[in-house]
Design a protein around this nucleic acid. Structure first.
Length: 266
DNA sequence: AACTTAATCAACCGCTCCGCT
DNA sequence: AAGCGGAGCGGTTGATTAAGT
C-alpha cells in the first residue's frame, strides 16, 4: 500500500546542488519554460527528483528572487500576514514579491519568532504573553467552543477590538475561501505597504510566474532587474551566463547581463 | 589555535490539494 | 463519484558558518 515515491530513489542524487546542476536546470527552464516537473530531470539531464528541481528553481534559481535579509517593512508585513494567515507561508510569500515561502519560513523561525518573544508577544497567537498566560488559565473550557484554539487563529492587537468580536470564527475557517476579506481596512489603511500589496493581490497570488522569453510584452519594470537578482549568481558560482549557451535570452536580458559583467570587471 | 555551541538556511520528506480520467 | 498522479505546501533535518570560550 501507500503511494509510490515521487521519483525512482535509485540513481537519484540528493544533497546540495552543484553549479553544474544549477546550470543545467536554469538552461533547461529558460529554454523550455516550466513544464511538468516530473519530466524536467530527465529532459534536463539531471539525476534529481522533479520535486527537488522545482524546489531548487523556486527557492534559489528564479531570476526574480530578491536575495538578502528581509527589510523592516517586509518583516512587519510578514508579522501582519502571519497574524492573519498563520503558518501559510506560501500565501504570505505571495504578498512579498521576490521572496519564497521557504525563505520567509526560515526568517520567521530564526529571527521574527525571537524578536516577538523578546517584545513579549506570543509568535503563535500574536497576543501579549502575560495576557496569553491568563487566557490559558481561564479558558480551559472555552477551548471547547473554539475548535482550532491554539492554532493560527491569531489577531493583531490593533485588529482585535471590533473586528475580532465580529470575527468569532477562526482564520482557518475564514481562509477556506477567498482570504481577501480577512484584511480589513484597518490594516490596509494603516500600512501603505499592505495596502499596496493588497491592491496587487490577483497578480501576486493567482498569476503564474512566467519567464519572459521574448522582449515583446515584457514589462521589465514589473520584475526586479537581472542586475539585482543574478549578480549573486554570477558572483558566487564559477560560471557565467554565457557558459549556459543560452540562445533564449532576448536583447534586453543579454544587454543587462553584459552591463552586469562589465560592472563586475570594474 | 582548537574546540564547542549557536545560528542560519538549503534541501528533503510526507502530506494535502486539485485536476484529469 | 472514485481513483490516480502531479504539483504544491508546511514541517523538519542536516550541513555549513559564525561566535564564544
Amino acid at each position: 500500500m501507500g503511494r509510490q515515491p515521487c521519483c525512482d530513489k535509485l540513481g537519484v542524487k540528493k544533497g546540495p546542488w552543484t553549479a553544474e546542476e544549477d546550470k543545467k536546470l536554469i538552461s533547461f527552464i529558460l529554454t523550455n519554460g516550466q513544464c511538468c516537473w516530473r519530466a524536467v530531470p530527465k529532459l534536463a539531464g539531471l539525476r534529481r527528483c522533479g520535486k527537488s528541481c522545482r524546489l531548487r528553481w523556486t527557492n534559489y534559481l528564479r531570476p526574480d528572487l530578491k536575495r538578502g535579509l528581509l527589510s523592516e517593512a517586509e518583516e512587519q508585513l510578514v508579522i501582519d500576514l502571519h497574524a492573519r494567515l498563520g503558518n501559510r507561508w506560501s500565501k504570505i510569500a505571495a504578498r512579498l514579491p521576490g521572496r519564497t515561502d521557504n525563505e520567509i519560513k526560515n526568517h520567521w523561525n530564526t529571527h521574527i519568532k525571537k524578536k516577538l518573544l523578546k517584545m513579549g508577544i506570543d509568535p503563535v497567537t500574536h497576543e501579549p504573553l502575560q495576557k496569553e498566560a491568563k487566557a490559558t488559565e481561564t479558558s480551559s473550557h472555552a477551548d471547547d467552543c473554539l475548535p482550532e484554539s491554539g492554532n493560527h487563529s491569531s489577531q493583531l492587537p490593533e485588529a482585535n477590538g471590533t473586528a475580532s468580536s465580529e470575527n468569532s470564527g477562526s482564520p482557518t475557517e475564514n481562509c477556506s475561501g477567498d482570504e481577501s476579506h480577512l484584511f480589513d481596512n484597518t490594516v490596509c489603511d494603516n500600512d501603505p505597504l499592505m495596502s499596496c500589496l493588497w491592491g496587487e493581490e490577483t497578480s501576486l497570488v493567482d498569476g503564474p510566474w512566467e519567464i519572459p522569453t521574448t522582449g515583446q510584452n515584457f514589462d521589465n519594470t514589473s520584475l526586479p532587474s537581472w542586475d539585482e537578482n543574478c549578480s549573486w549568481l554570477l558572483d558566487c558560482e564559477d560560471f557565467g551566463i554565457h557558459d549556459f549557451g543560452l540562445d533564449c535570452f532576448n536583447d534586453f536580458e543579454v544587454n543587462t547581463l553584459n552591463t552586469l559583467e562589465m560592472g563586475n570587471k570594474q
